[in-house]
Simulated scan of single mutants.
Amino acid sequence: MSKCSYTEKTKDECIIANKVYDQCRQQDCIEKLAYSALAPEEPINPPNNAAAVIIVPNTFGIGGIFLVNKSPNLLRRGYYDIELKFSFQYELQFRDGSGNPIGANVPARSLFNKKVSLFGSTGTDVNVYSDFGGFSNLQVAPFVLVEASSYPLEATLGYTIPITSGDNPPVPNSVNVTIGLFTIIKLFRLVNLVVPSTGFCKPKKCEEIAEDPCEYFNNLKFPFDIFDPPQKEDFFGNEDDDEDDEENTQEYLEEDLGNE
């Protein structure tokens, strides 16, 4: 581990940092039409004999996150309205009534717009310059940072008429996809902060890799965990503090009622 102190004394240091002024998290279950990745304005048109459709494993991902709008909220001072656009890319595979693939995989995409309002404080028209990098109007509005993780949940066929039994089954005319999206959105500014410091970090000596692969392997710790899979409580742990608080509250109430 790096030694981050030349002295035991602590002093205040002024640093330049990206300070987060506000942030929020959200999980969205999104149902969207699938559009052609080659012709973005055209919805996917399934084969007439398609009975099912799946999102091909390992082809799904976020193709891009774009800032559509960042503007001051007209009703709440210091708040900013943020609109983001998410582009999801994946491949579809159509299957017939026997479960056999129909043709080649089809590249597709879906779009999702998200709006949030976050506190970003107020700024002024100040130009900032550094030879590390030039910035213009740095203090006017905060910067946006987005972290996202998405998962394909389902793909289904859409029909021109409801599915009914008969000699002439309905023909599919669209593909609907369901996507799970976890998002964290932050507003931050470049500011000066005073922080306690014990000095500069002193890096440790680099560890050289042994040329002999057996020497490297024999020095590794024995991986007991791969032979003894973790139990449920070890695997999940305390994933959500809110859930822990609710459980503790429930236990407290039960004990309190039992003592009455």
Rank of each mutant, 00 (worst) to 15 (best):
A39I: 05
K19C: 04
A39L: 09
F188S: 06
L190T: 07
E215R: 09
V194T: 15
L75A: 11
T59S: 15
N168A: 15
G134R: 12
V194S: 15
F217E: 10
T249E: 15
L253Y: 13
D125W: 07
T183V: 15
P107S: 06
F132R: 06
V195K: 14
C214W: 11
I102T: 07
G180M: 08
T7H: 10
T10M: 11
S36A: 04
D256T: 11
P169V: 05
C206N: 08
Q89H: 06
K202N: 08
R77W: 00
N100I: 00
P170E: 12
F217K: 09
A17K: 08
K115I: 04
F222Q: 03
S87D: 03
Y90S: 05
F66D: 12
K221V: 06
K221D: 14
K204H: 09
T164Y: 08
A108W: 01
T7C: 13
I163N: 09
G97T: 02
S165G: 11
G237C: 06
P172L: 04
E239I: 11
P40S: 08
E154Q: 11
D244L: 15
E83W: 02
L38S: 09
Q26M: 15
C214I: 12
T59P: 01
N48Q: 15
Y21F: 15
P203V: 01
F222K: 07
V195W: 05
K3A: 09
A50I: 01
R76N: 02
K232A: 02
Q231K: 04
R76K: 10
L38Y: 06
N100H: 08
E233G: 01
D12E: 14
